[in-house]
Structure formats: structure tokens, C-alpha cells
């Protein structure tokens, strides 16, 4: 992947988020294709954790990419990330609303969602490993990641979004607020609650 340059924004992002310990790196992209290639996998996993459905996650990511290219190619590349996640979150919200209506109209027909354990099992099957890692360390890490994914899935929607955008994507509070369509104060609240919850649930797994 060729990039124009990688810039660490010390003036705004890092100073603002120093207390939470989140390092923010802003990357400049030469074109929108590079940008989509960089974020597609992350966006897919975020959508899957939100929807609990592999097929719906793919559909949502495809629609989001399509809309971003259709409407915002002309925008500055620094705006693409928050815009893309704003679109992604809107699509996920639409998904929840559609499912709520469907479940109300056809209560006997459950939505095809995967259990939290299914996603966790698929992670275990993937065989996540690093070079020079012992087999038992690999197994422990896989189990830990599987549990992390399960607990993220169980978070309330807004906490989940705030956590994934801040921790995984590395967006600043301001960018996360733009992506979520809420205030920076709300982002801090959602993020803080998500962290408290995850830390309490995963304390034993991460402190071995």
C-alpha cells in the first residue's frame, strides 16, 4: 500500500486524548481506492459485531462504500474516515429498525443472526497466531480475542460504536462525535461506560 505520508497529529488529536491513552495517527490517502482498501476489513468486522450477521455485514459495508464514493469523492481525504463511519453507522441503525419492524410483523420468524458464540468460534477456527508464539500462548490469545468479540457484541449500540471507533479505528473524540452524530460529551460518556464494562468482564483474561 503506497501512502502519501503518515502524520501524527500532535497538536489536536493526541493532546486531547492523552488522558484516555488512545494514540491517534492520521493517515493521508492518495485516492479513495486506497482509503477503502485500508478500512474495509475493519469496517466489515465492526458491521459484523453490530449486526451479528455475516451477510448483512457485507451488504452494509458494500452500501457504505458505494455511498461514500457516490457522494463524497470530491471531499478532502481527511474527511473520508468520519464520513464513511457516519454512513456505516446510519446503515447499521437502519438495519436495527428494519429488524424491529420485521420481528413485530412476523414474530414467529426470527432474524437470521449468529450467536455471540458463533463469531467467537469462527475466530478460534481462524487460527490467529503470531510468529514465534508458543501454541498454548496462541490458544490463550484466541480465546481472549473470542471473549473480547463476544463482550463487544453484547454492549449497547452506542457504547459499541464509541468503543470501536475510538479504540479500533483510532478516531479522536471530535471525529467520533461526527461519525456517531452526537456531541463530544456523549462520546466520552459512551466510551467510558464501554471501557468500564469490558474491563470488568475481561479482567481475568487480560491479567494472566
Amino acid at each position: 500500500m503506497s501512502l502519501a505520508y503518515i502524520k501524527v497529529d500532535q497538536n489536536i488529536s493526541l493532546a486531547e486524548d492523552n488522558q484516555s491513552g488512545v494514540g491517534v495517527v492520521s493517515i493521508e490517502y492518495n485516492n479513495i481506492d486506497q482509503f477503502l482498501k485500508h478500512i474495509e476489513k475493519r469496517a466489515f468486522h465492526m458491521a459484523r459485531l453490530s449486526t451479528r450477521s455475516l451477510e448483512d455485514a457485507h451488504d452494509i459495508v458494500q452500501e457504505s462504500m458505494y455511498k461514500l464514493v457516490q457522494k463524497y469523492t470530491d471531499k478532502d481525504s481527511s474527511a473520508w474516515k468520519p464520513l464513511f463511519y457516519r454512513i456505516l453507522n446510519s446503515k447499521i441503525t437502519d438495519y436495527y429498525r428494519r429488524n424491529a419492524v420485521k420481528d413485530r410483523l412476523f414474530p414467529w420468524k426470527k432474524s437470521d443472526i449468529e450467536d455471540a458464540n458463533d463469531y467467537g468460534d469462527s475466530i478460534l477456527d481462524q487460527g490467529i497466531a503470531r510468529l514465534s508464539e508458543e501454541p498454548d500462548a496462541v490458544m490463550l490469545r484466541q480465546q481472549r480475542i473470542s471473549k473480547l468479540a463476544s463482550h463487544i457484541q453484547a454492549l449497547p449500540r452506542r457504547q459499541k460504536q464509541a468503543f470501536m471507533l475510538r479504540t479500533w479505528e483510532g478516531l479522536s473524540t471530535r471525529e467520533t462525535a461526527k461519525a456517531m452524530g452526537c456531541s463530544e460529551g456523549s462520546v466520552k460518556t459512551h466510551y467510558s461506560r464501554a471501557m468500564i464494562r469490558l474491563r470488568s468482564m475481561l479482567e481475568d483474561d487480560y491479567n494472566d
Binding site: S20, G21, V22, G23, K41, R42, F44, H45, I123, Q126, G127, I128, R130, R141, R144, I145, L148, A149, M164, T167, W168, G170, M195, L198, R199, S200, L202, E203, Y206, N207
Partner: peptide
Amino acid sequence: MTKIPVTEFTDDLKSLEENT
């Protein structure tokens, strides 16, 4: 309660992404 560093979560999530 020992506070889990955010970087631990970030590392694990990145592993998940890399192994799509």
C-alpha cells in the same frame, strides 16, 4: 482491579482484522 490498558484491546482487535 488492575486496569487493562487500551492498547491490549487495540492489539487484539488488529489481530482479528489481520486474520480476516
